[in-house]
Design a binder for these strands. Structure first.
Lengths: 192, 192
DNA sequence: CATTTACACTAGCGCTTGCTTGGTTACTCT
DNA sequence: AGAGTAACCAAGCAAGCGCTAGTGTAAATG
């Protein structure tokens, strides 16, 4: 069995699994469904993954790693003004969320299905990502761009953003960047 | 079997089911677990509910009915100023969400598990509730309290509110009304 | 008093689940 | 050519699943 390696085959399988997990939910997705989607038999699945849990962990890890990378890159590449950074962070969040959508929907809504070990490991990744947000929000508050309780503001903003996966239509007229601008405008009094 | 009645026993069972559905998720909650929580054997469960699906539908219906009632009452009882109504609606939403929490978490995160018939029936209830929101948001926009795309604004606000069930701690220092005020302040430029 | 109704029980059927076992194929590297 | 390995398959096990059938019993109803 392929322990913890990142073979291209395994990556592709992870992508397919993410799609099925979104479509059906983790619990309703059987190993037989996963195998069929991958074009193999259910027994062969366990050559690539130790068990079903590990597939879930792989999907979530993949998505969270990506989010972290994109957000860091976006922040590195932009100016130091709090407003620019805030907008960049919102854009980066939506970009990841809506392009790598399957993995993120799984991360958001199936996190509880992780066993404690995997959850502990992945929590660090998620914390690292949220730390970026805390920084950006704090700077924006200090600069007077937005106001309010830092904890509540960041929760509200992340909630509004994460919820987009429930209604956003990528074939509709609005781009992810449109959403980002609209949200920033909504919470920034100076935009009037 | 007790078809569609609303006996007090059934109401209590629905409440217990909601709790278990939140704890374990609908799919992982077995009829045997439900029965044990209710103090009966699994076979007896089907005297009260036609099948497992009907329990889910009962939980969601119960929660949505409550939300609709509370919101209507709140709007009826408050003044006509758009700002007052917006604040009242946000408060009502959070109040329902966080007191009748189990039912709403199920409604928000297990809706997809409903079979088409139940989903169609309950969609009307949810649409009635969302219509209240559309009204309030439209009035607030027209009065210049907030600005932006009416569709996006309402989605963002509802997203921020609904996401609270993922982090809000009822034993913490903040009351639901605190959250409501903070959110309204966040999106209303005039509050500075 | 006889009958119905509400609610619970026992027992288990038929099926699906995640996962294992033991073996085969195809390809690479020496 | 021979060894090693990654990828797969057929077959099936043990456990758990939703749900049904048939029965018992105490309270309400005629």
């Amino acid at each position: 069995m392929n322990v913890m390696n990142a073979s291209p085959r395994r990556k592709e399988l992870t992508r397919l699994a993410a799609q099925l997990f979104v479509q059906e939910g983790f619990d309703r997705t059987t190993v037989r469904m996963l195998a069929q989607e991958m074009g193999i038999k259910s027994g062969s699945l366990f050559h690539h993954f130790k068990d079903k849990q590990e597939i879930l962990a792989a999907v979530i890890e993949e998505g969270t790693q990506n989010a972290l990378m994109i957000a860091r890159k976006a922040l590195d590449e932009c100016a130091a003004e709090p407003e620019v950074r805030l907008r960049a962070m919102v854009r980066a969040h939506l970009e990841t969320l809506l392009t790598d959508r399957n993995a993120h929907v799984v991360a958001l809504f199936e996190w509880r299905r992780l066993d404690p070990a995997a959850s502990a490991h992945l929590s660090h990744l998620r914390d690292a990502y949220e730390a970026l947000w805390v920084d950006v929000i704090d700077d924006a508050l200090e600069a007077g761009l937005i106001h309010g309780d830092r904890f509540l503001v960041s929760r509200f903003v992340l909630g509004a953003l994460n919820w987009t996966v429930r209604w956003y239509d990528p074939n509709g007229p609005r781009s992810p960047d449109d959403l980002a601008d609209e949200l920033v405008a909504m919470i920034m009094p100076t935009s009037a």
